[in-house]
């Protein structure tokens, strides 16, 4: 893995998300920044995709369950060439545009519209099951937030995937430990989260979700795992990369004002 490629990609994801949230007064920068490094490593080094053939049956699929953090996904898809001919910056949340502020499958490169939490993992189970039944080699990735693990539908799917030995399925939990009203520990405790996944029969890997080498290694380990799905519990920081946003609940909601925008942009551009 050339780490500088994904590091630079993560930087551009964060800058694009900042522009979108600032200019269009949109929310969820905190959740976009906690997942930016994982998206960067996934798209730079693991997803077998071709923007010229977004519906190629052999492609790897990403099901982005935390659809509210859409700016990070839109940014990485733009960087990957899926939005050539579209104007993300102009059209984001604009009347009549498919760039809604929860991800939308009407756009190329997006498998599933989300925004309602707890849907993507079950759908990905169906897609992974189809690959097994049809002996197809594509892999299915799911990125879910921690807060949405409160949804019972997720636990139905968490039971399902190991029972059917879906080793072509990888679930990444963006464990930034903040949800809409506060800390996950205070709202509805998830810990010991790794033990829960292990008990349910998942191959479970816990990593620092901002360390590109560890993220890359986790995806590689998942590919080597047979007979059961892999859960990557990525310990992350909400708002990662901008000092005043980090680990701050307010950035689940806020869009930056002029001063905040300027400072955030300066910090992000100064990063290596």
């Amino acid at each position: 893995m050339q780490e500088n490629i994904s590091t630079q990609l993560a930087k551009r994801i964060r800058l694009t998300a900042l522009e979108l949230c600032y200019h269009k007064k949109a929310s969820h920068l905190g959740g976009a920044y906690s997942i930016a490094d994982i998206l960067a490593v996934l798209y730079a080094h693991h997803m077998r995709i071709d923007p010229e053939q977004p519906d190629d049956p052999a492609r790897d699929r990403l099901f982005y369950s935390k659809g509210h953090a859409c700016t990070a996904l839109y940014a990485v898809l733009q960087e990957s060439g899926f939005f050539d001919g579209l104007d993300l910056h102009e059209d984001f949340t604009t009347n009549g545009s498919y760039f809604t502020s929860h991800v939308n499958h009407q756009l190329p490169g997006i498998e599933l519209s989300t925004g309602s939490l707890g849907h993507a993992l079950g759908v990905a189970c169906g897609v992974a099951l189809a690959a097994k039944r049809k002996s197809r080699g594509y892999r299915s990735y799911v990125i879910a937030s921690d807060g949405e693990l409160d949804e019972g539908s997720n636990w139905e799917a968490i039971l399902f995937a190991p029972h059917h030995a879906l080793d072509n399925l990888v679930l990444v939990i963006d464990y930034n430990k903040l949800q809409s009203f506060g800390r996950t520990d205070d709202v509805l405790r998830l810990d010991p989260l790794g033990d829960k996944f292990k008990a349910f029969g998942w191959h479970t890997i816990e990593i620092d979700g901002h360390d590109h080498a560890l993220i890359d290694a986790a995806f590689r380990e998942a590919k080597q795992t047979s007979g059961r799905p892999t859960a990557i519990i990525a310990h992350t920081v909400k708002g990662k990369g901008v000092s005043f946003m980090e680990d701050t609940l307010a950035w689940h909601y806020k869009s930056p004002n002029d001063a905040e925008y300027a400072q955030a942009k300066a910090e992000l551009e100064a990063a290596v």
Partner: peptide, 26 residues
């Protein structure tokens, strides 16, 4: 048997799995 599955007592997941299977041509 290759086109049948009892998903368990989990209707939300049954519909989600159905959606995924349908996306892949079933």
């Amino acid at each position: 048997p290759e086109r049948y599955l009892n998903v368990g007592v989990a209707e939300q997941n049954m519909m989600q799995v159905a959606a995924g299977l349908a996306m892949e041509g079933y």
